[in-house]
Design a protein around this nucleic acid. Structure first.
Lengths: 153, 153
DNA sequence: TTTAATCTTTACTAAAAAGTATAGATAAAA
DNA sequence: TTTTATCTATACTTTTTAGTAAAGATTAAA
């Protein structure tokens, strides 16, 4: 199970935007410079985020990107939804069907139950963390994570 | 976040072996036929599983693969560990470092905290499910998953 | 000892994901 | 109106993952 490059870098771009202040826009060169990415790649990431309505873009002089809404009201779940697929989705069983048309376990599949439940856990976890927590809630988020850990064990 | 092909198919091969009975061995053609995989690909998967000591192989006539220990004492966590990397590991920050030598957030990184905690949750979850649960615990596993869901919300 | 059925290993090809480049569109300032 | 700074879109290249092929090693039976 892997976090993809789009997810990792896309999230970091969101953090940078959250940190730069609500009404100030950052340009692609600025974003890419801060995260150590090429301008092209940052452009690709920001396009994805814009198409998901997570950021707003403005062209021309004084243009750039800013968050489409306050960091407090953007959850990691939303961000991940924009950047990739969930751990488990209905296409899974078709994708991993080997030589067959669909997976041979189509009905009554325990593996699917396990993935679906895990996927739900992950979604809940990501839902509970806001972009603001990550961008400037240094103390808050550590406490939150500690609390979640304690709950889990 | 994605489940990889090795993880998905590798787990399914383990389930097939668990279902075939403790002392009976299955050959590559048998395994591949049951899961709809090519013999070559099944060979690759089983080699990985063998090198992780999850299955035992015997060559020659009457050869084949069987589980290295009872399905009750093999957790999904072990199986996943053999087949791929965890969601978060120490190499992560180096891998996703953009143009830089290491990620610019090396010290005091909230993103890393979030991944590390998530990774721990996932491990706990996988640890709590045995191969036996998946292979022949039809009722048991559904109940288990329901209980875990209830706990989470 | 030969043969056939099996696993083992390594190298190869194909597909997907990651990352780059380039030409075009828009906005504002000169 | 021209120029410059910006985003946008698409096509391309590289790297990684997925999947295949083929030759070798082992075992047991004939």
């Amino acid at each position: 199970m892997r976090i993809t490059a789009l997810e990792e870098y896309g999230l970091r771009c969101m953090i940078i935007l959250a940190r730069c202040g609500k009404d100030q826009a950052l340009t692609l060169p600025e974003i890419s410079e801060r995260e150590g990415l090429t301008v092209s790649y940052a452009g690709k990431l920001l396009m994805i985020l814009r198409q998901a309505d997570l950021v707003q873009a403005e062209r021309g002089r004084h243009g750039g990107y800013k968050l489409a809404k306050p960091a407090e009201s953007i959850s990691l779940k939303e961000i991940f939804k924009a950047l990739g697929e969930p751990v488990f989705n209905p296409a899974h069983c078709k994708r991993y069907s080997g030589e067959n048309e669909t997976c041979i376990h189509t009905k009554d599949c325990r593996v699917r139950d396990v993935w679906a439940t895990l996927s739900m856990f992950i979604d809940d976890y990501l839902q509970g963390i806001s972009l603001a927590d990550l961008a400037y809630g240094e103390i808050k988020i550590l406490k939150k994570l500690e609390a979640m850990k304690a709950l889990a064990t």
